[in-house]
């Protein structure tokens, strides 16, 4: 039981006024997710004399980490706005800033059923899904992404995220360049080459949608039953913003999440993913824009890792998982070389 359990129990008790009793029976810090601190909570909740076990997930700002500086509130506001939407995002009722509660801001969402397959080769070397599972999961993933991109974000009050208009690509490039500079590390030549190319190829973005920012294998919650697999949730909305929907497409099909297979998020060939998304949304996946976002995806992931390394180097975090990124970055630079074309030229 995590030491925070009593405080989380108190929080639940005060936020469930209709409950006669609330008792946390399990509270464990999750190992998955290297950014925000994630606590998986189970509690017995008594109402009308009956006790039901309910599950929640509490996400707390870390002291230091991959996506600093942290502000959980925008993410909470998006999830809260989508609570009643058929999109499989976790219903998210509460956000708390008072440091008296859990020392740092946090939000609480309902725990959805399922497990999170990770982008790893698995025993088969073909990723975490077999052919039958891919056939069932792919349409659900495409449909979910299409519905995300169809959300009327203005009607949902999500314009607080800032509408970038046609400059959506430039805004994201600037965002990630700033974060990269903030790490203070000397720029690796692979990243430098990519940034020069990106600056020279910023596309105008014709349509602005809600962008998840981290839509990919590793954030798909699935439930497996004999002979079936269902997508039950999309997790990790930390990087949600308004922008180009192709950013989500490029991220999902990136070599980052193929686990050594030729399949986008271990589901299908990247070209098939793109054409299915086009069919589902009615939008065209402009090749130039997709190319821009494909390169930026690798710069973004490199920046995230470098941010973690800086936090570890400075002693602001003791999480060894940040230190392992030095062993991951060469693979990212190799992917950059492949996407940019200079590795194939070797």
């Amino acid at each position: 039981m995590d030491p925070l359990a009593p405080r989380i129990e108190h929080f639940l008790r005060t936020h469930l006024p209709d409950a006669e009793a609330v008792r946390v029976v399990a509270c464990e810090r999750s190992t998955e997710g290297f950014s925000q601190e994630t606590f998986v909570v189970e509690a017995d909740v008594m109402r009308d004399g009956r006790t039901i076990r309910q599950g929640w997930v509490a996400k707390r700002e870390p002291i230091a980490g991959l996506l600093e500086p942290y502000d959980l509130e925008p993410e909470f506001r998006v999830l809260h706005a989508l609570t009643d939407d058929p999109l499989p995002s976790p219903p998210t009722p509460w956000f708390e800033r008072d440091p008296q509660v859990l020392e740092r801001p946090f939000y609480v969402m309902e725990r959805l059923a399922g497990d999170v397959p990770v982008p790893a080769p698995g025993p088969s070397g073909q990723g975490p899904f077999d052919d039958a599972e891919r056939a069932q999961l792919l349409p659900a993933v495409i449909d979910t992404l299409a519905r995300l991109h169809a959300i009327d974000w203005r009607a949902r009050g999500l314009d607080f995220l800032g509408d970038p208009g046609p400059d959506a690509a430039r805004r994201e490039l600037t965002r990630w360049e700033s974060r990269l500079a903030a790490t203070g590390f000397a720029l690796d030549p692979s990243l430098a080459e990519a940034l020069h190319w990106l600056r020279a190829h910023v596309p105008a973005v014709p349509i602005v949608t809600l962008v998840h920012g981290d839509f990919r294998l590793g954030n798909f919650l699935v439930v497996r039953e004999p002979g079936s697999i269902r997508l039950t949730g999309i997790l990790d909305w930390e990087m949600v913003h308004l922008g180009d929907p192709l950013e989500d497409v490029a991220w999902c099909i990136s070599p980052l999440w193929r686990a050594g297979t030729p399949l986008a998020s271990c589901l299908c060939p990247p070209e098939e993913f793109v054409s299915r998304w086009e069919a589902a949304t009615g939008h065209r996946a402009d090749a130039a824009r997709l190319g821009f976002w494909s390169v930026l995806a690798l710069v973004k992931m490199s920046t995230i890792m470098l941010t973690g390394l800086r936090a570890f180097q400075d002693g602001r975090t003791t999480d060894l998982r940040m230190a392992i990124f030095d062993n991951q970055l060469p693979y990212l630079y190799a992917m950059l070389g492949s996407v940019r074309g200079w590795l194939a030229a070797a």
Partner: peptide, 24 residues
């Protein structure tokens, strides 16, 4: 050519990743 060769030198010294085990 140098970038490509250097990237491969950097990758070749790495040991198999334990990222999956670390995550789980």
């Amino acid at each position: 050519r140098h970038l490509a060769a250097q990237v491969m030198r950097d990758v070749m010294v790495l040991k198999p990743s334990l990222l999956e085990e670390i995550s789980k």
